[in-house]
Every structure is written in C-alpha cells, then in structure tokens.
Design a protein around this nucleic acid. Sequence first.
DNA 1: GATTATAATAAGAACCATTCTAATTTCCCG
DNA 2: CGGGAAATTAGAATGGTTCTTATTATAATC
Lengths: 146, 146
Amino acid sequence: MKADATSTHESGMPEEINGLRMTRQRQEVYRFLMGERTHPTANEVFMRIKETLPNVSLATVYNCLEALVQHKIVRQVNFDREPSRYCPNLDEHGHFHDETTGKIHDVKFKPGIHLADVLDLPPNTVINDIEITLRGQLACASDFSR
Amino acid sequence: MKADATSTHESGMPEEINGLRMTRQRQEVYRFLMGERTHPTANEVFMRIKETLPNVSLATVYNCLEALVQHKIVRQVNFDREPSRYCPNLDEHGHFHDETTGKIHDVKFKPGIHLADVLDLPPNTVINDIEITLRGQLACASDFSR
DNA sequence: GATTATAATAAGAACCATTCTAATTTCCCG
DNA sequence: CGGGAAATTAGAATGGTTCTTATTATAATC
C-alpha cells in the first residue's frame, strides 16, 4: 500500500525514452534488461529488481514491461505459450531456443537479407511486427560468439 | 462421466495417420481443421464438433489437438500469448495476422527460399521447429488468393 | 511554494487458456 | 469373451497475466 520515496532521477538515465517517462521502476527494469542477454521473464525481472526496490510489485513490473514494449524500447518474445520474455535488442532478429541448454539466442539474418523480402506477401501489405522463433539443438562447440 | 458409444470407423478416414490411431474424436477434430482455413482455437474446435459429438469434452479436444500436433498431422500456431490456433497446412510457411479483419493467412516463402538458408546460424545447428508470425494490415483489395 | 490534476505504483483478487486428476469407457489382442 | 492399455470425460487445479482499488508520486497551475 505504501510506495517508496522514489526520487526518480539520480542516475545517468534520461528522463524520457521514446516519449516514455522513465520512472524509477521503469529505469530499473530497463537497466536490468540491458545488462542481461538471457531474455528474462517478467517474474525473473521482478525477483531481480526487488533487490534494489524491495517494495516493487509484480504488477508494476508487468506495467513497466508493457510500457517499454509499447514505446518500442524493448521487445516481447514469446515461445509457444511459455511465459513472455523480454529483449532489449531492437534490430530485426529472431530467437533460437536451444532445447539442450534451455538458453535463448538472438539470430541475425545473413547480410543484406530482410525477412519481408523473402516472403510471398501481397503488394502494399503493411507489416507492423515480425516474430521468428526456432527450436533445436546447437552443435556442441557453437556459442553464437560474435 | 459417460462416454459416447463411439463406433469409430464408419467414415472414409484411415484408421491411423502417422502412427496415430484415429479415434472418432480425433477424426472429427482433424476433419474440421482440414475443412477450415481460419486457424481455429481449441475452443472453436470444441464448439463446432460438439454439434456432431454432443458429449465431447474440451479436455478431449485439447488431447486430440496435442496428439495431432505431436504426430505432425497439424501445426500449432501461436500469436503472442493469445489462445493457440491450429493449422492443417504442413508446408513450411508463416502466418500473417491481419489486424484490420482479424483474419489469419498462411504466408509462403518466395520460390526457392528456405528460412534456414537466410538465417545466420552456427554450423551444424539442428532446427526442430520454426515459427514465423507477422502482424499488420493487408492492402484493401488483397486477398491472398492463390 | 502550495494546490490540484494526472499518471504511476502496490497489493491482491480475478481471469482464462490450458493441464491435471480420477473415474469411466473403448479398443486391442489373445 | 476377458484383461490390460489407451482414450475420453467432467471438473478441479494451475499459473501467467490482467484487473481493481487505494495510495503515492509527478506535472501543471496558481
């Protein structure tokens, strides 16, 4: 029932991103996502930022994530009907779920390729969002190192 | 608690598909999906086959759908976290969700293109499943007619 | 700087697609 | 036909997410 005395702007984060006011909670969610590359779920974000903001609520984490997604600051990634995951990589890319390790990796297109170019869509189709997800096994030595 | 006297094989359906015994319920689910191209949800399948099998249960519809999916007879299609939809088209293809009409359309690749070929994956990666979903608006006159 | 309006947050209840459980029925195979 | 395995049913349970309501923080205005 009682929110923190969340003095909002002590960190080096801008007051707004893409028109979204960066409250303390949104900052923490965003900062965590930027540092993580494991595509965490809402609950994982929640557990992690509770260390910094002990009174944060799960609902707020969902609210923050939704706001970040709607302002195109992070992307929401879904594998089948598993819990949604969140990704700060805004480049056009897909996601590979390694069934051996459980890890999720970003997958880029080969140079010069854009998905819309290889799909057989009617002319003038407007594409607002694309999601590409793969499941499989990575060869042992592979690590997607860049 | 009481199941129908479901005499199984009066129709022209094979007794097995891909090693899956085609019970009456599975037949009805499969037949409906083959006739529909609207990518129905489990509940839509349920409501429809209840007309033929009044005692069918929703759990059975889920069981049937899962069995059909696992035997690669139909595909499960997910848009974000909306209810799963089911698709009898087994060709490699994606799905376009038209936000204007709410309809879902199959999307083919341009001739000769395979998704795995345009992705930048480590060598020897095993891909078990690919899902491509798009959201957007179809130009007015377009209808994906083939 | 104080006041009011608007937006964001917190806590927990509610939602709903899906899965699970237990009992019953059907199918398969001798 | 009989026994065991598989499938079905109905309803309860699950769990990620959303909703509701009250409270708190921020922005706008005086």
